[in-house]
């Protein structure tokens, strides 16, 4: 496998841009950063099927940042939309109206609210039907577009506008982040990966590797959100790095169901270093330090990594 590696260093990345500037998403958007890197690998022949969410703002009528096509769907149906587009392309090719070399990659763009909650059923259907498509989830761990309401991707201990820390609920969000990676893996698609904009070589290599598989290719992109997580936009990359270095965001892939971690920090940093960078975790430190909750978070990280120790 090593000899197949296409991306070894930053300078292997494409200098061509496929998402043009002028979009109305926030300055410092971690999701856009990940998508920009993702698109560089896929190249220009792409059709996006976009579930409602922050990335609705990418293509704001009559403007589009994409050089290719874009289709908008509601939050629950992007994978169903992708099925329709894929079928249409296949029919055009079969009937000779589209040359096979002009074929396009169908990519679902969806946030965590769509991915973890509303579109779970239509994603399940698309994977079950072995639809040949890419799924890009920009996971900013809440419903960012509507003002940071809790989603089932919101991590335990975080504050959202619908799970504010209070006297009886000092943690803020009391539920635990849904393990969408494992939910997808149970469907046995050929390729799943987690990616982070801070690790562009790892990201590019994974997208490149996935392209050899026919069927569902699913990606969850860690997407730091300055507006919703309450930090200065310049820190997006630092926060993405801390998420990996503290073990809270595992970089991994599953090829035909077999899980492999693509980067494991030699020594995990204390998770407080990550949590303290963001306003959404402020209540764990001020006015009183919530030792019990911090211990729970550490315990979650430890038990995650424990299962992969040989």
């Amino acid at each position: 496998m090593e000899s197949d590696t296409k991306y070894k260093r930053l300078k292997d990345l494409s200098r061509e841009e496929f998402i043009l500037p002028g979009t109305t998403v926030c300055g410092g958007c971690g999701g856009l950063e990940a998508l920009r890197l993702f698109h560089k690998v896929l190249g220009k022949n792409v059709v996006f099927v976009n579930a409602a969410g922050c990335f609705t703002l990418l293509a704001l009528f009559p403007y589009s940042p994409f050089r290719g096509s874009w289709l908008y769907t509601n939050m629950a149906s992007a994978p169903a939309g992708a099925q329709g587009v894929r079928d249409a392309l296949d029919i055009l090719i079969a009937s000779g109206r589209l040359k096979p070399e002009d074929d396009m990659k169908v990519v679902v763009l969806a946030g965590d609210g769509s991915t973890y909650d509303m579109a779970l059923s239509s994603t399940s259907g698309a994977i079950f039907r072995d639809l040949d498509f890419y799924y890009f989830c920009y996971d900013n761990e809440a419903y960012g577009n509507t003002g940071m309401q809790m989603s089932s991707a919101s991590p335990y201990g975080s504050m959202t506008t619908t799970s504010k820390p209070a006297h009886l609920s000092t943690a803020g969000t009391r539920s635990h982040k849904k393990d969408i990676f494992e939910i997808w893996r149970a469907h046995k698609p050929p390729y799943i990966a987690t990616i982070s904009p801070r690790h562009p070589v790892d990201l590019s290599e994974k997208v490149s590797r996935s392209m050899q598989y026919k069927g569902p290719k699913l990606f969850i992109a860690f997407s730091p959100c300055p507006t919703g997580w309450m930090y200065d936009p310049s820190l997006t990359v630092k926060i993405a790095r801390l998420a990996v270095d503290t073990g809270i965001w595992a970089l991994k892939e599953a090829i035909n169901g077999e899980v492999k971690h693509t980067y494991i920090p030699s020594k995990f940093k204390p998770v407080e270093e990550y949590l303290m960078t963001q306003g959404r975790f402020n209540h764990l430190f001020y006015p009183v330090r919530q030792d019990k909750i911090l211990e729970d978070i550490r315990e979650d990280i430890n038990s995650y990594w424990e299962q992969y120790k040989k």
């Binding site: 979009t23 109305t24 009559p62 050089r67």
Partner: peptide, 18 residues
């Protein structure tokens, strides 16, 4: 009339004033 098949025309929106 807006040109819905325009490619990458968002570059006409200048976000530099942000």
């Amino acid at each position: 009339t807006p040109n819905v098949i325009a490619s990458g025309n968002i570059i006409e929106r200048k976000t530099g004033k942000w």
